[in-house]
Computed example of a mutant assay.
Amino acid sequence: MGVFTYEMEVITEIPTAKMFNAVVLDGDNLLPKIIPQAIKNVELLEGDGGPGSIKKITFGEGSQFKYVKHKVDAVDKENLSYGYSVIEGDALLNNELEKIVYETKVSPSPSGGGSICKNTSKYYTIGEFKIQEEQIKAGKDKASALYKAFEAYLLANPDAY
Rank of each mutant, 00 (worst) to 15 (best):
S121F: 02
E133S: 08
K77V: 06
S53D: 03
F150C: 03
E43D: 15
I14A: 06
K69S: 02
N41L: 14
K69G: 01
G47E: 06
E96G: 09
E78I: 10
G60Q: 10
L45W: 08
Q64S: 14
Y67D: 12
K66F: 09
P51L: 03
E134L: 11
V72D: 01
V101M: 07
Y84C: 05
V101T: 13
G47L: 13
P158L: 10
G83H: 04
E134C: 11
D76R: 00
S107Y: 00
P51G: 06
L80S: 10
N41Y: 14
K140H: 05
S109I: 13
H70F: 05
T12F: 10
T125P: 06
N29G: 13
V68P: 12
I35Q: 12
Q64L: 14
P36T: 14
K118D: 02
I126R: 13
K18Y: 09
S107E: 04
P110F: 05
K122E: 06
G139A: 06
K118A: 11
G62T: 13
V42H: 10
E128N: 14
Q64M: 14
G47N: 07
S85M: 04
F4V: 07
F150A: 02
L80C: 12
T5Y: 08
G49Q: 08
Q135L: 01
I54Y: 00
I14N: 06
M1W: 15
K130P: 03
G139I: 09
K130M: 08
A22S: 15
L92M: 03
N119S: 10
S63P: 07
I14Y: 13
L25V: 06
V24D: 12
L92Y: 00
N29C: 13
Y102I: 12
A91S: 07
G60A: 11
S81P: 04
V101N: 08
E151W: 04
I100H: 02
S144P: 04
A160I: 13
G62W: 05
N157M: 07
E133V: 15
K122D: 01
E61R: 15
E103K: 07
L92G: 02
V3F: 11
P108D: 03
P15A: 10
A145P: 03
G47R: 08
A152D: 05
F129I: 00
F65G: 09
L146M: 13
Y147N: 04
G49M: 09
K130F: 10
F150P: 05
D76I: 03
G49H: 09
V86T: 01
I57Q: 14
E61I: 15
V24Y: 15
N79F: 05
A17V: 03
N95Y: 01
I57S: 15
M8C: 08
D159P: 10
K130C: 09
A17Y: 11
K105L: 03
D76E: 02
A91M: 04
Y6M: 08
K140I: 03
L146G: 13
F59H: 09
G112R: 02
F59Y: 15
K137I: 09
F129T: 00
K18H: 11
Y6W: 15
G139T: 12
A160H: 10
G50M: 01
K33P: 12
G127D: 02
E151A: 00
A38F: 14
H70K: 01
S63H: 10
I35L: 15
F150N: 09
G114M: 02
L45H: 08
Y84H: 07
G139Q: 08
F150K: 03
G52L: 02
Y82T: 04
I34P: 06
I14R: 08
K140D: 01
G50N: 01
P108A: 00
L93N: 03
